[in-house]
């Protein structure tokens, strides 16, 4: 016998379909109303013409866009190098903090001190200290400010990420390690194959959140001097006495962040679903 939905079930289908169409129409209508209200409210305000002139000036935007794009490419490169390094550093520090036994005391102390210090230190100050303090030592082979500033960002974010990783590692129940060790796996193997994969999965949403936030903070490199998008925008602003270049840079940063934000949203949703699925 092949299954055919009963009359009652077909009624349910039809009812749900009608409901779905109704709610889509309602959503479209309310969105349109809110959008129109916003547009009218803003463009109708008394200061609008001046704001439009000094923040949304098309001529200024086209003039400085190429320079800002050039600078933005630096931000992208910096992000692509710093983000993986910060993730690695964070993971390493988190694992070091879990090591037990007196032999590892110095390692643990360094890792703990590191996370305490750089989570407390404002990123701006760290960048200044790295970019202007270290060269002051006049050591041989001090790298240029771009590398130093990048290191400051990486090390600061590494300390946030280390705490996220550590929370993940500690959320894996000790019985999982016991099970792995009872099979003859060494501590390292148990970490690598059993604890870390579960830990990383669990903290993927907060990790990605920090990566999104890092993506915009690479713009702080401009404080150290390299000409990135924000620095170019600043130069443009000084040259044109108009704030539009900042808005251009802002739009670029948002566009870069969007894909990551969407991914983070998806991962968070999926994590929430799988966590509730078992019950």
């Amino acid at each position: 016998m092949t299954y055919a939905p009963s009359a009652r079930q077909q009624e349910r289908f039809a009812y749900r379909r009608r409901q779905a169409i109704r709610s889509v129409l309602l959503a479209a209508l309310s969105t349109a109303v809110v959008g129109v209200l916003f547009a009218v409210g803003i463009t109708g305000s008394p200061g609008w013409p001046r704001v439009k002139q000094s923040f949304l000036n098309v001529d200024v935007a086209t003039k400085y866009l190429p320079d800002i794009l050039d600078g933005f490419w630096l931000n992208i490169q910096l992000f692509l190098v710093c983000a993986p390094l910060a993730l690695l550093l964070g993971l390493l520090m988190a694992v070091l903090r879990t090591l037990r036994g007196p032999v590892f005391f110095p390692v643990r102390a360094i890792a703990t001190g590191y996370t305490y210090m750089f989570r407390g230190l404002p990123l701006i100050i760290t960048i200044y200290l790295f970019a202007f303090g270290l060269p002051g030592l006049r050591l041989q082979g001090t790298p240029d400010v771009l590398v130093l500033g990048g290191a400051a960002i990486t090390i600061t974010y590494g300390s946030y990420l280390a705490e996220v990783f550590r929370a993940g590692i500690e959320s894996v129940h000790p019985s999982q390690i016991a099970a792995a060790r009872s099979l003859g796996l060494s501590y390292r193997q148990a970490m690598r194959h059993v604890v870390l994969p579960q830990a990383v999965r669990r903290v993927a949403p907060p990790l990605l959140n920090d990566v999104v936030s890092m993506q915009k903070d690479v713009g702080l490199i401009s404080l150290a001097g390299p000409i990135d998008a924000i620095r170019s925008a600043q130069i443009g602003q000084a040259g044109s006495a108009n704030f539009t270049p900042y808005v251009v840079a802002a739009v670029l940063f948002i566009l870069l962040a969007l894909p990551l934000i969407v991914i983070t949203d998806r991962v968070t949703l999926r994590a929430a679903r799988t966590q509730n699925a078992g019950i």
Binding site: S175, Q176, A178, A179, A180, V194, Q198
Partner: peptide, 8 residues
């Protein structure tokens, strides 16, 4: 183990 402890 009593609680299986399979790797999820």
């Amino acid at each position: 183990f009593q609680s299986y402890n399979l790797f999820p």
